[in-house]
């Protein structure tokens, strides 16, 4: 029997913990001209594309909340955005993504850009004085590209877990992929 390295129940929490650790330890050290990759968002979207809607939405909200608490932005902003992104990514037709890494990376790029765009808009809405279009061009777009680059790196790792998981009968992922 093809055993998965992680059980289905442990998969999401392990991904969540790894994402948070990477965001705190790694991300500040690999910033390029002030653009810091949002590794939590990358993990949320990649996992959401393989998960059922409910656990993906819960994970998106909780990880977004953690992101808000460990960074300097307004609390509640990223939890809102990541819950929306996770819900959207997990609600899309899974046949589109299964085994198609190009579609997954494109989805990640779109999700990352949408996330950065929403975050930028949120700052403007709550009254932070910032140049919206400059932020879009100099922060949101490079940020989304950087996130997608990490998606390319993390994608094979997740693929390895999820492909072996199908054989193990993971309810979490199998349900999402069907």
């Amino acid at each position: 029997m093809n055993r998965s390295p992680l059980t289905s129940k442990a998969f999401l929490p392990v991904c969540a913990v790894v994402a948070v650790m990477l965001q705190i330890i790694l991300a500040p050290n690999i910033a390029i001209r002030g653009v810091v990759p949002n590794l939590i968002l990358v993990v949320v979207v990649l996992v959401a594309m393989r998960s059922e809607v409910l656990p993906a939405t819960v994970a998106g909200f909780l990880l977004g909340l953690v992101f808000d608490l460990v960074t300097a932005g307004p609390v509640g902003g990223m939890s809102l955005i990541m819950a929306l992104l996770a819900y959207s990514a997990s609600s899309l037709k899974k046949d589109l993504f299964e085994g198609n890494w190009v579609a997954q990376v494109l989805m990640l790029l779109v999700a990352a850009f949408a996330g950065e765009l929403l975050h930028n808009a949120l700052y403007s809405i709550i009254g932070y004085d910032r140049d919206f279009f400059a932020s879009l061009l100099l922060r949101a777009l490079p940020g989304a590209l950087y996130d997608s680059l990490f998606g390319l790196i993390l994608f094979p790792l997740l693929q390895r877990f999820t492909s072996s998981r199908k054989g193990a009968g993971s309810k979490l992922l199998k349900g999402g992929l069907n």
Binding site: T57, G76, G77, S79, L80
Partner: peptide, 15 residues
């Protein structure tokens, strides 16, 4: 669930 999370997030933002 999504609607609930959105409302919680907006409440947190407001606070």
């Amino acid at each position: 669930v999504l609607v609930v999370f959105c409302l919680i997030s907006i409440a947190l933002l407001t606070v």
